[in-house]
Each structure stands twice: as C-alpha cells, then as structure tokens.
Nucleic acid binder design. Structure first.
Lengths: 166, 166
DNA sequence: ACGGATGTTCAGTTTTGATTGAACATACCT
DNA sequence: AGGTATGTTCAATCAAAACTGAACATCCGT
C-alpha cells in the first residue's frame, strides 16, 4: 500500500505523541516515588514496567532509563524486597527479566502499613521507658502510639480489600 | 523535712529517668518524622509539644532542641501550615508560644491524604496525554490512578473518623 | 527616637542519600 | 580452560535537602 507524504507524517506524529506521553509518565512517577520514600530511579523502573505491561530485561531498563547497571541492580532489589516487581527467567535467555507483580498496588499499601507499624513499635518502646509518675506525658504518648497503630491497621485492611477486588 | 543521702539519690535518679525518657522520645520522633517527609527538626518540635502538653515558647524550642532560631522559624511555619500546631499569643508576653492543635493526629492523616490526592491528579494528567490508541498502557495507568484515588479517599475517611472520636 | 528582644529571610555550609563506575563473582558458550 | 555477558558490591562523586547564622524588619517599653 502506497501512502502519501501527509499520511506518513500523521503516523509519525502519532507515534511521537505516544512516546512522549510514555516518557513524561515515567519521569512523573519518578518524582512521585520520591515523595513516597522510594529513590527516583526505582520509581522510574516501576513506571516503565507498569506502562509497558510486559516483561522488561535488566539491560533494557538500564538502556531506556539511561542509568548505570549498579542503579538498576539496587532499584530492582529494593522493588523486589517490597514485592512490587518480580524477576522472571526466560528460558534460553541470559538476562533477568522483570515485571510488575499482579497485586502490586495492594503490596504498596502493605509496605506503607509496615513502615507505620514500625513507627508504632518505636513509640511504644518509648512508652516503656517513661516512668509511671509522668502521667500526662504517658497519656499523650500512648495516644500517639494508638494513632499509629490505628493507621497501620487501616492500611492493612485497605490492602486486604484491594487484594480481594482485583 | 530532712532527707538522708539515699533518698535524695533516689529522687534524683527518678528525675533523670524521666528526663532521658523525654529526650529519647524527642529524638526518636525526629527520626520517624523523616520517614514521613517532615524535616527532622520539625519532628522534634512536634515531639516536644506532644510530650510536654503545654504551650512552649519559641525561645524554649530553640534552646531545648539546641537549634538555630532560623530552624525553629521554618519548622513551626511548616507545622502550622499542616495544621499540626498553632501559635498562641500570651497576654503581656513578647514571645510566640506554640502548642499542638487538638486534632493534630487527624490533621496528619489529612496531610497525607492531600499528598496522595496530588499524586493522583498528576497521574490523571498523564492519562490525558496518552493517545487513545494505546489501550494497554491507558488501562494500566488508569488503574494506577484509581488506586491513588482510593487511597486518598480512604485516608480522608480515616481522618474524619478520628475527628469524630476524640 | 532609642535599645533590646523577637521572628523571618536567605546565602552559605553541612549532611544525607542517591547515583555512578570500576572491580569483582558467576554462569554460560565455545 | 578461555572469553564474554551478566548482575552485584562498594568506594567515590554528585545532588538535594536540611540547617546555620548573620542581616534585616518589627514591635514594645522606655
């Protein structure tokens, strides 16, 4: 099929639009990730896997994101540890491949819940040390701990709900 | 009333225990604050106000936490902007005084909700740009946005609940 | 008006954490 | 075994954010 110049230009324009949309999304998630306590590169890895939806190789990550292999290594390890992505072996291929886990969103919530729970633990540790005579401080710190506990449970509940639905 | 040496020592030991418990709590919250996206000093200010329960002056904050007045200024402004503390004027006193707001915990949740909602907005912005032809990516990004939306609403609900209870 | 106490601002410094890249270990292919 | 592709580790670098302190503005009492 022969196409004229105008048609070709349209097609190219469309492809470009898709490419820039993808690039902007990846960068944006990189920034959002930082406000979630993830390093920027980890966020971009996550974004790329989410956007593309398919398995992506270690080399592709380093290449497409233009970062060192060292960074890719530490990022994917972090994301694996939080159960957000998984490493898959492709028969016959040397490289590692990665993809988002099914329940990635739920697991993000679980990771938050874990952080909050750890904070609650620390505060309760403090509570142990405060002498019984300090009734005012004890009451207020106990309230604070209870707040963190409640948050943690709320997040866990939310995670469970997410897991059921999708 | 005359007390012997041993009694005095006991009293002093008790006071010391209370003081170190307080100091450790303040430091600990400083660290936890960082994982919440607050600067460390702001966390310590918050901790001091929470522990002591009463109004604390600008000067006391700088003195007790051993930080510059500049740091106190920016910290209290940040905490005020998030509605976690309030500045109170004492009649006849020149210094500003600060205390935790009643609904501080609920407001912390609200602040988180705001952050999450902002992230959701950004992701939806991305969604606008992705061409309709990219059905796979669009669906996945939309899911991601929905997840953030749900989180935001969940947090807002939690905040409302907290406000009712206490 | 003056002096001193107070809070804010901002340029400079310090600290913290992320990122790189080279050395290394491992596995595979020949 | 030798060579190459691959992922990890870690010391060095870089970037971002927190923090300081001095200059400034404001207010209050005198």
């Amino acid at each position: 099929m022969r196409r004229n110049r105008t048609t070709d230009q349209l097609i190219r324009a469309k492809r470009d639009a898709a490419a820039t949309a993808r690039a902007e999304f990846i960068e944006k998630i990189g920034v959002i990730a930082q406000s979630e306590g993830l390093p920027r590169i980890a966020g971009r890895v996550l974004a790329m896997l989410l956007y593309d939806g398919e398995e992506v190789s270690f080399g592709q990550l380093a290449g497409a994101l233009k970062v060192s292999r060292g960074s890719v290594s530490s990022s994917v390890r972090l994301l694996e540890s939080q159960q957000l992505i998984k490493r898959v072996a492709r028969p016959g291929e040397r490289q590692d491949y990665f993809q988002l886990v099914e329940s990635a969103f739920a697991n993000m919530v679980t990771a938050s819940a874990m952080r909050v729970r750890r904070a609650a633990d620390e505060i309760e540790e403090s509570l142990q040390i405060i002498p019984a005579s300090e009734t005012g401080p004890r009451a207020r710190v106990a309230d604070y701990a209870a707040y963190y506990r409640a948050m943690g449970e709320g997040l866990d509940t939310a995670a469970k709900a997410l897991r059921k639905t999708r």
